[in-house]
């Protein structure tokens, strides 16, 4: 089993270190082979909304930077963890570039979900389990709710946790998640 852990080099706070240590320890104990990828400022170009990952080189970002390695590693893992600094209630800039540039992994077409909302269908038959763990030194209740809404409301196969400075709580929350790949609905 493979776990891919993606983090933001701009937020090397003590809070982050504690979370990072907990996650690395947890997945090592479960016998996962883990790959860590830390995104620093300037490592990734911003998605420029060209949609060439849909209509020119389907499934691949046309910007030749590290995103191809990140996406390939993530797509071939069983679990992907995004350790997300929560800024203004959403993903920090570096993490958001990772998220924006996930676009190639979906298909361009418009579909209606059972609840009437719109989505793009999945490109692959199955996907890694995605776990997003929000953290911040001064996380307000309002920003936590907002982060959950942004990440969960529109996606299935994503679990969202918050690091509340408690290793045992986070371990318990991870224990409740099925740590394996799942079929396509994004």
């Amino acid at each position: 089993m493979k776990a891919c852990i993606i983090s933001d080099g701009e937020y090397q706070t003590e809070t982050f270190q504690n979370l990072n240590r907990t996650i690395a320890g947890y997945f090592a104990e479960k016998g996962f082979e883990t790959v860590k990828m830390q995104v620093e400022i300037g490592d990734l170009a911003f998605c420029k909304g060209c949609f060439n990952c849909w209509v020119k080189k389907p499934g691949e970002c046309v910007i030749g930077d590290d995103i191809s390695r990140i996406n390939r590693t993530a797509m071939n893992s069983d679990v992907v963890l995004l350790l997300c600094p929560v800024v203004f209630g959403q993903f920090s800039a570096n993490m958001k570039s990772v998220v924006d540039r996930w676009l190639p992994n979906m298909l361009p077409f418009f579909k209606t979900r059972p609840d009437g909302s719109t989505m793009h269908p999945p490109r692959y038959d199955d996907y890694p389990k995605q776990i997003m763990i929000g953290f911040a030194d001064d996380l307000s209740a309002e920003d936590m709710v907002l982060f959950s809404d942004i990440t969960k409301k529109h996606r299935t196969n994503v679990d969202v946790l918050f690091w509340m400075d408690s290793e045992s709580d986070t371990r318990r929350e991870l224990d409740a998640i099925r740590l394996e790949r799942a079929g396509g609905q994004l």
Partner: peptide
């Protein structure tokens, strides 16, 4: 999307490629 892909010399089936999966 289809007509943009065609302008890039692609066919319909190419839109469904799965390049990142080993």
């Amino acid at each position: 999307w289809m007509s943009m892909a065609r302008q890039n010399g692609l066919q319909k089936k190419d839109l469904y490629l799965k390049p990142y999966r080993d």
